[in-house]
Simulated assay, not measured.
Amino acid sequence: MSTHPQDLEVHLPDRPGALAELGQALGAAGVSLEGGGVVTVGGRAVAHYLVHDGARALAAVTAAGIGAGIGPAAVHDVVLARLDQEVPGQLGTLARRLGDAGVNVLVQYSDHVGNLVLLVADDDAAACRKVVTAWGRRRSPSPGR
């Protein structure tokens, strides 16, 4: 089991029941979804879900996909950030800092406890973590507050 959450990316056929089959396969394998969703654009459905056991999730999807048209699937490392939910413009401000650092955000969603989940190219991961770390320090109250 991974010590940090990962993104499970799954390509789904654009048909009724595909999401049910994915959810049932993951549930049967004991994989809990911690955030994410599915988007269909131009007849192509792609799911991104935050999971704590990427290897188990990938194995379950791979096994379920045979004959059902589910897949391909992949597991990706993610960067988690925290936004001040009460302050409008937080996403834009953080995204601007990421963009200024040359980080291209490929997928963004939230987990069930309010963290921003960022999936970036492997080449951008270090820069993304640096920006998010600085962002977190800026948000942290100073000692004594």
Rank of each mutant, 00 (worst) to 15 (best):
G65T: 08
D123N: 06
S32Y: 01
D111V: 07
D7T: 08
V87K: 05
H76N: 13
L80V: 02
R56F: 01
A59V: 13
V41Q: 09
D14A: 14
A60D: 12
I70T: 07
V31I: 13
V107P: 01
D7L: 07
Q24V: 13
P5E: 04
V51H: 01
G17R: 13
D124E: 07
A28E: 15
A121H: 08
D100Q: 09
T133S: 15
V105F: 07
T3D: 13
G35E: 05
V117W: 02
V41C: 11
E9W: 03
R137M: 13
L91P: 01
R44N: 12
R145S: 14
R82T: 11
V39D: 15
S140I: 06
G36C: 10
A63N: 12
V10S: 11
L116C: 05
L50H: 03
V51D: 00
G27E: 10
G89M: 06
L12W: 05
A47K: 03
A101R: 02
R137Y: 14
L19W: 01
G99W: 08
G36N: 07
N115D: 10
P16C: 03
A45K: 05
G67P: 06
H76E: 13
P141W: 10
L106I: 14
T40E: 14
V131T: 01
L119R: 11
Q108C: 06
D111Q: 08
K130E: 15
P72R: 07
D122W: 00
E86C: 07
G42A: 14
V105N: 00
G23M: 07
L118K: 01
H48M: 13
H48P: 03
G54S: 00
E9A: 06
A134P: 04
A64E: 15
G37C: 14
A121C: 00
S2W: 00
N104D: 08
R56E: 01
L58N: 03
L80A: 11
G30D: 09
T93Y: 01
P72S: 12
R97F: 01
A18S: 14
E21V: 06
V87C: 00
A73R: 02
D77W: 04
D14L: 08
A64V: 14
G54A: 10
G67H: 11
G36A: 08
A134T: 08
A127Y: 02
L91I: 02
V38Y: 06
R82N: 09
L98I: 08
D111A: 07
V38N: 05
T3E: 14
L12D: 05
V79F: 03
A81C: 12
Y109T: 02
R97G: 13
V107S: 04
A101G: 11
T40C: 15
R145Y: 12
E86I: 10
A81D: 02
V132G: 02
D123T: 10
G35Q: 04
G114L: 13
A47S: 15
V51I: 06
G42R: 11
A125H: 10
D7E: 12
H52R: 11
L106N: 09
L19Y: 04
N104C: 02
V79M: 04
P72V: 04
D111M: 03
A45Q: 10
A59I: 10
P16G: 11
G67S: 08
S140Y: 09
V120I: 11
R138F: 14
R15C: 10
T62G: 13
L98Y: 05
P16N: 07
Q90W: 06
R137H: 15
H11L: 11
H4K: 12
T62W: 02
V131M: 06
V132R: 02
E9S: 07
V87T: 08
